[in-house]
Amino acid sequence: MRRPGLLVSHVLVWVYALLLALPLYYLLMSSFKDNTEIFTNAFGLPESWSFENYRLAWEYVSLGKGLTNSALVTVAAIALALVVVVPAAYALATNSGRLGKLVERSLALGFLIPGFAALVPTVLLAIWLDLYQTRTFLVLYYVGTSVPLSVVLITQYMRTIPRELEESARLDGANRLQVLLRIYAPLAMPAVATVMLLTFINIWNEYLIALVVAGPSTDVRTAQVALPTLVTNVSAEYGLLTAGTVITLLPIYAAYLLLRRRMENALVTGAMKG
């Protein structure tokens, strides 16, 4: 092995790491500075650790409401998705008929379609259902987008559960629903947890559909939609802008720090099943 080659790759990798880290450091530091300080001292620590920017950003674009809306939509969609997805995965995992195969295939294809591809008809659907500019539509829509990947992931996991467990329970007189609730759902918890984390990340971070469906009202819009309005609301106050960005990032990043391994596994699994 030629040593110089390895040294070059170490250097290149860390240059990239620095390129990733520096903007994030700048984001955090700027959130404690005012424009003058940002423009003259981009790299240094702030002169004082004042949370004034955070307070103002919170007020100017009603970030509190935005975060509440995001949380409501996310929690409701995850709960509803589980009710829909787990029975479907059970049905597909325990059924080897042709219809099951067909449903599973078409769901696997659906995973490839970015929801954005149907941006306009999605809004038309919201209007048609009389749910335009409501959080309800966002919840229903996000459940739909989470179905393909969630069903495929949980189905694959449930296939590893021995069928004998179901057969003996059925001999004891349990019906399909009881088998699902008492045996399959509890045993599939690792896959269910992965799906919940993935759904959480995807919904919390979603921007474009939330923008065009929920609209500009602060009572309905999510944090992701509220955040960029800082650019137009308070023109070029970079301290406020970065403080708002940090606030919006905080919930998902806190979850990451708490559940690091699980979250990393979820992201990798979610991307690998394509």
């Binding site: 919390w204 971070n205 921007y207 474009l208 939609v225 919006t248 998902i252 990451y256 992201l267």
Partner: peptide, 10 residues
């Protein structure tokens, strides 16, 4: 992973 968790808006 940190950069992967950033939303398009952030």
């Amino acid at each position: 992973f940190t950069s992967a968790l950033l939303s398009v808006a952030t």
